[in-house]
Write a protein that binds this DNA or RNA. Structure first.
Lengths: 326, 326
DNA sequence: CACAATTTGATAACCGCTTGACAAGCGGAA
DNA sequence: TTCCGCTTGTCAAGCGGTTATCAAATTGTG
């Protein structure tokens, strides 16, 4: 592997000149530039980025902490982030946290030790303290963390859209299916939006709370039971998460319940999956979220100021699961 | 940010001792070890991995070139690879090639310049020359490249299973839907397996070739037309790729054609999507593929020898789209 | 207590590149 | 010719670690 000295020798210049040509090419004349380029070519020289980083204290690497790229939403997000990074001359160090708070912490430390220029975080939020007081630019995606700029989609608006769509499609007894309340501010905003719109339209706010395990194991009896409740026979369901919606649809189908005939169903995320299943959903602009996260992070790396909270619009994707003709 | 020298001072030892404790802890006594650890703790010291890499010539980073993590298959693969890397103390530099051969080449160069310890490649294979003659351990996933160890699933066997399943489910006129023939040896193996089994069971080998654009735009008329062909009224379809299968199912459904009534359908990949759509598929052991790729790469990094070609078993996932009761 | 074994110190070179200070060479303009 | 401005050379220190060498200090052992 050839070094900058080899190139310098080959081109009959000094190392400083080669370095200048690498970093401020306008400082070196056409003729020597050509000589140096030729030498690089001949030696197949590529500057050692490690060595560079060591002296410039800039790696042009950004770290991404994300639960799991095998989930459609996060896979798409990772892809959007990667692509934006590449467009801006940054590389991406990927960490899968699996929603494990301890892993997150150790990954933070690892990224610090590897001198990444900044971090994009999709945090579990189990231990928000871990992210604060870190002397490194951070941008959070779809999670609200004090003192850390975040980009998320307008979850409140998403909740509003979902409520309105259920009611528009003729539901009299809508319900929102939620996770056990946690620190997920985005989930809270979705609920709030949903609640706001329900009440504005004169409907009752009802929710069904499921545990993570129930979601994971598709134990949705609480929901089908609620559909048979004479006092409030649920006929419209807003479930936040496309995979959950897909699981629920299957669960119900096995019990002979079909959308839109027996109930309306709307999800949240806007993944392709919903297209195949013909399920309505609230679309999250993932590509834009990823791109904006990268943009903001780079601004912070360059010491520019960025807005503390960025909201991107959620939008309704209407499919047969919320069609009127029940 | 504190350096190794700061730690040395704080602990009243010399840098060499601190370095020893970092790299061969057994060489330093209990008592000083404690002192050093305490000093590190107090200074919140984390060794600068860049500097380390520069002198050891080992980054413990592996580069991954993959088309696009937003596709279910690659998202899952990336996740499997990341997770195995983490388990083995490696970090992952992720590159999205989007199947673009030029991007692949420049990413190769980038990874080289960043001194990754090795590369896992999911190549487009548009320019296989680019990967060869690279002085760095490489492992290829699901692509066969001369002189580069590869891990893939047993595509031949997968083709066999698909053919047998179609025929078992009662098809008289099965067909395989293929991409235009390219350099994808894995696709070739699938075809071969399919063909082998068809002929072994006394059936005719028929294929329908579609272009990438036709796949992408879901222009499947050639297939539905074939289903009406009186000479060979296609009643069973093996389409290699789950998303394609999903798209085809939708395409057919819009024309009133349903599985398993009007035709049998089997995909290839084994993604969750197929579960939701109740479609049969040949399952690729993605997690194992990722883990094995990492394992082999690490072996190569450590100068151990590895097998040139590794095959992991494909398996049939049977769902209603290939059930007999048509 | 002498001797060996273990642990630590001190120093310096090195990994490959950047950067600043300063001088020297060169050509063109006045 | 002289002076200026651009380009390049020279030199050296520094980024934060690793590692080899050798010597010195500490500890354990019989």
């Amino acid at each position: 592997m050839s070094t900058i000295r080899d190139v310098a020798n080959r081109a009959n210049v000094c190392v400083a000149t080669v370095s200048r040509m690498l970093n401020k090419p306008e400082m070196v004349s056409q003729s020597t530039r050509k000589r140096i380029l030729a030498a690089m070519e001949e030696l197949n020289y590529h500057p050692n980025e490690m060595a560079r980083s060591l002296s410039t204290k800039r790696t042009h690497i950004i770290g991404v902490i994300i639960p799991n790229t095998s989930l459609p939403l996060f896979g798409a997000l990772a892809d959007a982030i990667e692509s934006s990074c590449a467009d801006n001359g940054y590389k991406l160090l990927l960490c899968g946290s699996r929603g494990n708070a301890d892993k997150e912490s150790s990954m933070m430390a690892m990224l610090l030790a590897n001198k990444v220029d900044g971090i994009i975080l999709c945090a579990s939020l189990r231990n928000p303290d871990a992210y604060m007081n870190i002397d490194l630019p951070i941008v959070s995606v779809d999670r609200i963390i004090p003192n850390i700029p975040s980009v998320s989609c307008d979850n409140f608006k998403g909740g509003v859209l979902a409520a309105r769509e259920l009611i528009d499609s003729g539901c009299r007894y809508p319900v929102i299916v939620n996770n056990v309340p946690g620190t997920q501010t985005t989930a809270i905003m979705r609920s709030k939006g949903y609640k706001y719109e329900c009440e504005r339209l004169g409907y009752e706010y009802r929710e069904i709370i499921l545990t993570n395990e129930q979601f994971f194991d598709c134990e949705f009896d609480a929901i089908t039971d609620a559909m048979k409740n004479p006092d409030y026979p649920v006929d419209g369901i807003f479930i936040t998460g496309d995979t959950h919606a897909a699981n629920l649809k299957r669960f119900c189908a096995r019990r002979g319940l079909e959308t839109p005939r027996d109930y309306k169903l709307i999800g949240f995320d806007g993944t392709d999956l919903m297209d195949y299943l013909d399920l309505s959903t609230i679309s999250v602009p993932i590509v834009e979220l990823g791109a904006l996260a990268v943009e903001l992070l780079i601004k912070r790396i360059e010491k520019q100021s960025v807005p503390e909270r960025s909201l991107l619009p959620a939008s309704l994707i209407r499919r047969s699961s919320t069609s009127k003709d029940a």
